[in-house]
Design a protein around this nucleic acid. Sequence first.
DNA 1: GACATAACATACTAATTGGTATGTTGCAAA
DNA 2: TTTGCAACATACCAATTAGTATGTTATGTC
Lengths: 195, 195
Amino acid sequence: MSKAEATRSDILRRALELIYKQGYQATSIDDILVTTQVTKGAFYYHFRNKEEMGIALIDEAMQDEIWPLIEKSLSASPNFRDNIYEMIKGLLFEQPFLTVEHGCPAVNLIQEMAPLNDAFRMALIKSLNKWKRAIEAEIIRGQQAGQLDTTHDAKQIALNVITLYHGVRNMGKLLGKPYYISFLKEFRRYLDILN
Amino acid sequence: MSKAEATRSDILRRALELIYKQGYQATSIDDILVTTQVTKGAFYYHFRNKEEMGIALIDEAMQDEIWPLIEKSLSASPNFRDNIYEMIKGLLFEQPFLTVEHGCPAVNLIQEMAPLNDAFRMALIKSLNKWKRAIEAEIIRGQQAGQLDTTHDAKQIALNVITLYHGVRNMGKLLGKPYYISFLKEFRRYLDILN
DNA sequence: GACATAACATACTAATTGGTATGTTGCAAA
DNA sequence: TTTGCAACATACCAATTAGTATGTTATGTC
C-alpha cells in the first residue's frame, strides 16, 4: 500500500470511528482532521467533499470491518442454524470495534442518512443486499442439506434475521448488554422452531 | 390552554416534525424558529436550552402523537393477538404524521441520542417502558383468557414485539412500504405460532 | 539532476451554530 | 389607572461549519 493509499484509508477508518460514535452529520471534517493528524488539504485531495467520503466509508471501511466475521461464521459448521446464530452472536459480542451503547455503524447510518441522501441510501442498500444474499445462500444450503423444509422462503427468513439484528442493535442502546443475551436466547429459539 | 401554553406546545410540535425528518443534532434552533414564527426570545423563555426542549419533546409531544393509537388498539378486541397485531399495523400504516422513509421518531431518537446524552436516554427508557408494560399487560390478559399458554414470558414477548418494530422501522428506510407489508404477514405468523 | 505532478500544508471565507443581553409589550391584580 | 411581571422581540456574540485558494514538498520518470 502506497503512502497516499495509507493516508486515505486512515482517514476512512478514523472517520468511521467518529461517525459511529457521534453520527454522520454531527461529525465535522475538522474532527476527523484532528484525530487523523491529516490536514485539510490532504482530506480534500482524497475526497471531493464530505458526502463522497461518507459513501467511500460505507463501500470500503464498513465492509472491511464486518465482512470477515460474516463469511467466517457462515461457513464454520455444516449446520446452517449454528452458522446464522454464530454470525449474529459474533456481530453482537465479538467485534472489538463495536459497543452495545453505540450499536452498529451500518444500522446507525441507515437510520440517520437513508431518508436524507440518495447516494447514501443506494450504498447502504447495496451493502444490505450483499449481507442478505449471503444469509439467503446459507439458508438454501441448509434446505438442500435437509436441515430445513423447502417450503420456507429463504429470502424472507434472511430479511427476518436482519430485521431482528437491526432491532436488537437499537434496543441495546437503551437496555444494555443483558438484553443482547436474552435476545440471543430468543433468536436461537426462533431458528429452532423453523421446521 | 393559555396563549403561552399554546406557544410552547407549538414549538414542541414543530420541533418534533423537524427532528423527525432531519435528526436532533441536525435540526437547529433557528430552523424551529423559522417554521414556528416564534422568536428566539420566546423559545428561550420556554426552554432553558435545546436539550431541555428535546426532553420535553419526548415526554410530551411524542407521547401525545402515538399513545392514543396504542391504547385504542390494545383494547379493541377480546383477542390479544388481534390487538397487538393491529397496534403494530396501526403504527406502521395509520399514523398520518409518520412516513416509511423517515421511520419512527422514537426509534430515530434512540438511535441518535441514547449513546450521547443521559437525559435523553432516561426519557426514552421511560417512554419505552410505558409501551412495554402496556403490551405486557395485554399479553397477560390473553393468558388469563386462555388464549396463550402461561409458560410464555409476557415480558419477553413484549420486548420481542418492540424489537421487531424497531427493526422494521429501520429496514423500511431502505426497502420501503412493500417491506412493511411482507413484514406484517410474518408478524402475524409469529403471533399465531405462539401456542 | 531536471521536471512534472501527486500528495500534501496553510490561510482564509461566508454561513450557521447555540446561547445571551437587553430590550419591549400585554395583561392581571391592586 | 398604575404597576409588576409574564411573555415575548431584537440585536448581538464567539465558536464552529464545509469548503476554497494558494501555496509547498515529496517522488517517480526521463
